[in-house]
Design a protein around this nucleic acid. Structure first.
Length: 156
DNA sequence: GCCAACGTTGGC
DNA sequence: GCCAACGTTGGC
C-alpha cells in the first residue's frame, strides 16, 4: 500500500449510539453530521481508515474503542427526509449537502480512556479533542497519537 | 463581506 | 443546568 490508513476521531453520544451499540450492529452509517468541517473530513476518508470511537456528553467523556471506515463517503439520506431530526431543507437527492461514511466495529477498549487521561498523557497535548471549546465532531488524528491511545486502551 | 445575533456543542 | 466557545445566518 502506498499510503497507510489515516486515523480519525469521531464523537458520539453513548446515550444515542455508543461502542456497545456498534459492537452489536457491527456496521453503522454515520449520519447526522451537520458541520462543514466535519463533513469535509468524512469526504476525505477512505475504506480502511482507523477511527477512535469517542463518547461525548458522557460521564466521563473519553475514547471507548476502535472502529474502521468500511464505506467511502456518500450522501447522508437523512438530510432530505422531512421526518428526520437531521432534516435540512437545503439538501436534496439531486444536490446532497451532507455526507456520511459507514464504520465497522473493531474493538472495545479493555480500558476506557477518559478525557482527563488524554489531557495528562505526554504526546497527546496537540489533539484537537482536548482543546477546550473545540467541538469538531470528526477530526484527524496523527499515527503517533493513534498508536499511543491504542496502547493505553489495551493496557499496554 | 462585515459582524451581531442566534443556535449548538459538550465539558463541567 | 450553566455557559464558553464556536459555527452559521442574515441584515446591512
Amino acid at each position: 500500500m502506498a499510503n497507510s490508513p489515516a486515523s480519525w476521531l469521531m464523537k458520539t453520544e453513548p446515550d444515542v449510539f455508543g461502542i456497545d451499540d456498534l459492537a452489536r450492529k457491527r456496521v453503522e452509517h454515520w449520519d447526522g453530521v451537520r458541520n462543514f468541517q466535519a463533513r469535509n473530513h468524512m469526504r476525505s476518508m477512505k475504506v480502511g481508515d482507523q477511527v477512535l470511537f469517542y463518547h461525548s456528553s458522557a460521564d466521563p467523556p473519553g475514547v471507548a474503542g476502535l472502529a474502521r471506515v468500511c464505506r467511502d463517503a456518500y450522501p447522508d439520506f437523512t438530510s432530505w427526509d422531512p421526518k428526520s431530526k437531521y432534516y435540512d431543507e437545503k439538501s436534496t437527492p439531486d444536490s446532497p449537502r451532507w455526507s456520511m461514511v459507514d464504520v465497522e466495529f473493531v474493538e472495545k477498549f479493555l480500558h476506557f480512556i477518559p478525557l482527563d487521561q488524554l489531557r495528562q498523557t505526554r504526546g497527546l497535548e496537540d489533539m484537537l479533542v482536548i482543546r477546550r471549546g473545540m467541538r469538531l465532531s470528526v477530526q484527524p488524528v496523527t499515527p503517533k497519537e493513534f498508536e499511543l491511545i491504542c496502547r493505553l486502551g489495551r493496557g499496554g
